[in-house]
Design a protein around this nucleic acid. Sequence first.
DNA 1: TGCTCCATGTAACACGTTACATGATTGC
DNA 2: GCAATCATGTAACGTGTTACATGGAGCA
Lengths: 195, 195
Amino acid sequence: MALSHALLTSLLEKSSSGYDLARRFDKSIGFFWHATHQQIYRELGRMEAAGWIASSSAPDAGKTRKRIYRVLPPGQAELLRWAAEPSAPMDLRDEFMVRLRADAALGSLDLAPELERRIALHQDKLALYREIEQRDFAAGTGMVRAASIHHMILKKGILYEENSIAWAQEMLDLLKKKSWNTNPRHQTPEPEAGA
Amino acid sequence: MALSHALLTSLLEKSSSGYDLARRFDKSIGFFWHATHQQIYRELGRMEAAGWIASSSAPDAGKTRKRIYRVLPPGQAELLRWAAEPSAPMDLRDEFMVRLRADAALGSLDLAPELERRIALHQDKLALYREIEQRDFAAGTGMVRAASIHHMILKKGILYEENSIAWAQEMLDLLKKKSWNTNPRHQTPEPEAGA
DNA sequence: TGCTCCATGTAACACGTTACATGATTGC
DNA sequence: GCAATCATGTAACGTGTTACATGGAGCA
């Protein structure tokens, strides 16, 4: 389970309420990893029960139920323990690849519009990441360790978006191509071949 | 839900048993998307109940329970319907990014060995993909549409692995760097900033 | 008054993972 | 005979998603 550890990390950076955490998460780790508020409240409840975090009524709570969560020493110890574990690289589990294979099997399904929509989405995200990069990681400044790491995480996102755009554009060109060789000798040998 | 549609696509390419499907899946879509045999049997059961697929005892079953699944017209119609739907680009949900943020928050956690392990894993995968590319998509041959699409899906994987290696190597250099600027003016302004 | 946002929660379900179980076939 | 592989399944649990519910605060 990694969500709880992502939340621990986020709370270490800044104690906050579940609601704030959900919004903050969306703007940091959540650029890559979305979590709903339900997931977050559920994890906060479990972590509090486990003694990893504690909550207290927020100073600005008024009559609301607003609570501030903070990391306790056992929570920090758990995060240290977990960080040393190996983990598998993520899957490239993209539904669009399945749609493409369906297109290959059934004949043209006109996936070009969806591909164009995705290119636009990737470009928007890329623009956002570059804006953040310019704002928070201006070139030339000798950065401290933590900031350099945050910068590298952002760069991972930038690389991914750039790549996705380049690939999608090549794919789009291919889908728009008219003249196909129908000689069966040039087909792949087996259905399982080729990714 | 996309797994059922991935299985439909795979069965369209070739009717097969649940077991064969699981193995074939691992070697095609499953390079990017792993599914356990339990998931696959569960989905096959649902799809048969829904009338998307039908099964019959395999010709080579002998005394085993081996069954061959094939796609029925309603299954193909469902795949066509689904393929036209828009879908969100996948998350970059990588646990290692969380570990890096934990490292940034807590001080050096010695993540270099894990990073080196990951580089090796990415290199292995890249070598495998390139082998498949050479075997099934030899350069210069005018390919048919379906093969070109399969090639592009494979290329997506190749690009991703190349990228991951390049990024991880830069990250590794950064983690091994000794001299850090500790001037707090160079820290990022807010915890939520920077990916 | 009604609208939006803040803040927290329950319920139900779909999807994914792990462990365990069963029996036939193939090869040494 | 024994082990590995083929082939299919159940059970339990953890994670992720969607829908719905509740009530306070700020604003027009």
